[in-house]
Each structure stands twice: as structure tokens, then as C-alpha cells.
């Protein structure tokens, strides 16, 4: 390893900081251009539907399957602990609140980053490396409008829908385990849940969370694809970055949003 002087280290550190700020600025300008810039080629609705299919519908399977299993596990774990206190009726309330407030939006966003975000990055990165993006520019089509904007909107729309579907199948899976297998009385399971879950505080706050996550994850994904080095190595690095950055952003933002929504300050 080459020996670097202290001064050099400080210089590199400062350079890295400036790079981060520059990337942030570049991605914001990129997003503004993609969303607000005028004039696109083709029918925007057709493009959007195609991307909604690729981003949303194709992610349904993994969301539904993991939702059911997470609901079932929550129900099993909750039942074991709650039955020690003789209050196993509260398992419905526990499963519903956990899913609606936290796990629904967060786990969906993490899965979404892995399933759809990485695919978006790789697709756009590949277009860049095979110079499809510059060819589009050549024939007078803005790739930001034609390629990036429909993908961004598709992710932004799909994410809350997926999160809601995740919560519903999770609660259904939890109900199946608790009511059918563990013998919690069905009436008190649902009644406890309905008594403790408030539509505005719990359901809507969860939806707001998933909207924010959808925005951030898709933004990171399309930007990393657009900004990657146009080599196969660069694409693989960008895909990794998408998943890592998106997951970190989701978890960090979740803390902030939870503190704002449920933290009482």
C-alpha cells in the first residue's frame, strides 16, 4: 500500500465530501429535469403502463408471498409471548399495528429496492453503455422524458399499492395462523384489531411512509442507472449501490418519519 501523508489524506477526505454533495446536486437536477422538463416522444400513458407492469405487477409475487409469511411469523411469535400473560386476543392488534405502521412499508420498500430498483438501474445502465441513450438524444428525443420519467412514476405509484397489499395479505396470514391453528377466538381477534387501529393515525401514516419510500427508492434506482460508468463493471457497481443506498435511505427515513408521526414531538 502506498504511504500517504496526513495532508494527502485530508485532501482525499475533503474531495470525497465534495463528491457526495455534487452527486446529490446532480441527482436533484436530474430528477427535476425528468419530471418537469417538457416534450416527450411517444404516448406517455402507454410508456407508463408498460413500466407499471414491469415494476409493479412483476413485483406482486414476491410481495404477496413474503407478506403472508411475515404475517404468519408475527402471529406465531406474538401468540407465544402474549399467551404467557393470558392476553392472546391481543395478537390481532399486534399483527395489524406492526404491519401497518412499520413492517408493511419498510419490508416492501426493501424488497422493492431488491426486486424492481436493481432491475431499473441495470436496464438504464445497460442502455447507457450500449449508447441507446445518446442515440435517443441524437434523434431529438429526451431520454429523461422517454426513459426515466415513466420508470420513476411507475415506481412512485406501485410502491404504496404494494405496501398496502403486503399489509393486507400479512394480516390475513396472521389471522389464519392465530384463528385457525392456534385457536384464538375470531371475534375478539378482529374486534381488538378494529378497536386499536385508527384509520388516519395508522393506515394513512403507513401509506404516507410507503409513498416517501417509493419516491426515494425509485429516485436512487433511476439516478444510479443514469449516472453509472458505461461499462459492465460500472453497471454492476451501480446496481449494488442502488440496493445498498436505497436500503439505508429507507431505514434511516423510517426512523425520522416514525419519530415525526408517532413520537409525540
Amino acid at each position: 500500500m502506498r504511504k500517504t501523508s496526513t495532508l494527502e489524506r485530508i485532501r482525499l477526505f475533503g474531495r470525497a465530501g465534495i463528491d457526495v454533495v455534487a452527486t446529490l446536486g446532480r441527482s436533484s437536477v436530474f430528477l427535476l429535469h425528468a419530471l418537469l422538463g417538457r416534450g416527450g416522444a411517444g404516448k406517455p400513458l402507454q410508456l407508463l403502463i408498460k413500466q407499471l407492469y414491469a415494476v409493479g405487477v412483476m413485483s406482486l409475487a414476491i410481495i404477496v408471498v413474503s407478506g403472508i409469511f411475515i404475517g404468519m411469523v408475527l402471529s406465531l411469535q406474538g401468540f407465544n409471548i402474549l399467551s404467557d400473560y393470558g392476553s392472546e386476543q391481543a395478537v390481532g392488534q399486534m399483527v395489524a399495528l406492526t404491519l401497518l405502521r412499520e413492517l408493511g412499508p419498510v419490508v416492501t420498500a426493501l424488497l422493492f429496492a431488491g426486486r424492481a430498483g436493481s432491475a431499473l438501474t441495470a436496464e438504464i445502465g445497460n442502455m447507457k453503455s450500449t449508447e441507446q441513450l445518446s442515440s435517443l438524444e441524437m434523434i431529438g428525443v429526451d431520454p429523461l422524458k422517454y426513459i426515466v420519467a415513466p420508470r420513476f412514476w411507475a415506481g412512485f405509484i406501485s410502491m404504496p399499492l404494494l405496501a398496502m397489499i403486503f399489509s393486507v395479505v400479512g394480516i390475513w396470514g396472521g389471522a389464519m395462523v392465530a384463528v385457525d391453528w392456534l385457536g384464538v377466538y375470531e371475534g375478539s381477534f378482529w374486534a381488538n384489531m378494529q378497536n386499536s387501529v385508527a384509520f388516519r393515525e395508522d393506515v394513512l401514516n403507513g401509506v404516507i411512509k410507503s409513498v416517501v419510500f417509493g419516491f426515494v427508492v425509485t429516485w436512487i434506482a433511476v439516478f444510479q442507472g443514469y449516472d453509472c460508468e458505461p461499462t459492465s463493471e460500472g453497471i454492476s457497481r451501480a446496481t449494488t449501490k442502488t440496493v445498498v443506498y436505497a436500503s439505508l435511505a429507507v431505514l434511516g427515513l423510517d426512523f425520522i418519519l416514525t419519530a415525526l408521526m408517532f413520537g409525540d414531538f
Binding site: 407499471l52 407492469y53 409493479g56 405487477v57 406482486l60 395489524a96 401497518l100 406501485s158 404504496p160 399499492l161 404494494l162 398496502m164 397489499i165 399489509s167 393486507v168 394480516i171 378482529w190 384489531m193 378494529q194 378497536n195 387501529v197 385508527a198 384509520f199 395508522d202 393506515v203 401509506v207
Partner: peptide, 19 residues
Amino acid sequence: LFLLAGLLALLLLALRVSG
């Protein structure tokens, strides 16, 4: 169908889960 499923999920959350 995907959009309908999403809306149905919201409806279920509203009526069945939060009462």
C-alpha cells in the same frame, strides 16, 4: 388488476382492519 388490487387493499384496511 394491479391498481384494483391496491385499491381493494386500502378498502380492506379501512373497513375490516381499522373498523
